[in-house]
Simulated scan of single mutants.
Amino acid sequence: MKAKGFFRVILILLVLSINIGCDQVSKSIVRRKMDYYDQIGFLHNHITLSKVENAGAFLSLGDSLKGPMRIILLNLFPLIAVLFGLYYILAKTDLNRLTLFSVILIVGGGIGNLYDRIVHGSVTDFMHINFVIFQTGVFNVADVSIMIGMFLLLIQAWLKQKAEPEPGRAVEQ
């Protein structure tokens, strides 16, 4: 492996570790310092912290699954997706920086939530936003990471599509 490739891998693993670390530290603090359903409000309670354990996936989907279906849908499929994402960012050396960063955020968030599900049996969620017309479910730092990564990928795809000429249209010179 060339020095450039080695430093690229180290940088990817460093950013990934920081991402996962921020998620796990925040969840650890919440697990130790908050009781279930305690609420700490900010901005006139539009942003609240409240410890909730999510036994399912996004918005508690699948929390009532049992046995092998639970393991397959909530552990195995996410593990395969995270491993594929990790392979993708390490093997695909021609990714632009924004795409690379976006996928690192998605993989890091996935690893953070998958780790919780495997080690703790559920994912610790603790943030909630309620601005009347905009309200979220309870979420965590890993969820924020995944959403920012997806948002950046969508913006990049939209900008790339806008930059490409429409089929059948002549390009002005």
Rank of each mutant, 00 (worst) to 15 (best):
G137C: 08
G121I: 13
V103E: 03
Y115Q: 11
L105P: 00
L95Q: 12
S102W: 01
Q156T: 09
G56T: 11
T48G: 02
F151D: 00
T136G: 07
V82K: 05
A157P: 00
M150W: 03
G110S: 07
I72E: 09
Q156W: 11
L73E: 09
F126L: 04
I80L: 15
A91K: 15
I89K: 04
G137Y: 10
A163I: 06
H44E: 02
G56L: 11
G85V: 13
H44L: 02
T136W: 06
A55S: 15
L159W: 08
V141Q: 00
S102P: 03
G62V: 13
R97I: 12
I72R: 00
I89A: 09
D94W: 04
I111S: 03
L100H: 03
H46C: 01
L153C: 10
D116A: 05
L79S: 14
G108H: 08
H46W: 03
N140A: 07
V123A: 02
V82E: 04
E53G: 15
Y115F: 13
N113W: 06
Q135T: 11
K160Y: 12
A142T: 02
M127P: 00
I111D: 00
Q161F: 09
Y115S: 09
K160H: 07
I80T: 10
G108P: 05
H120P: 01
M147W: 03
A55C: 13
G149N: 04
I47T: 06
D116C: 06
N75V: 15
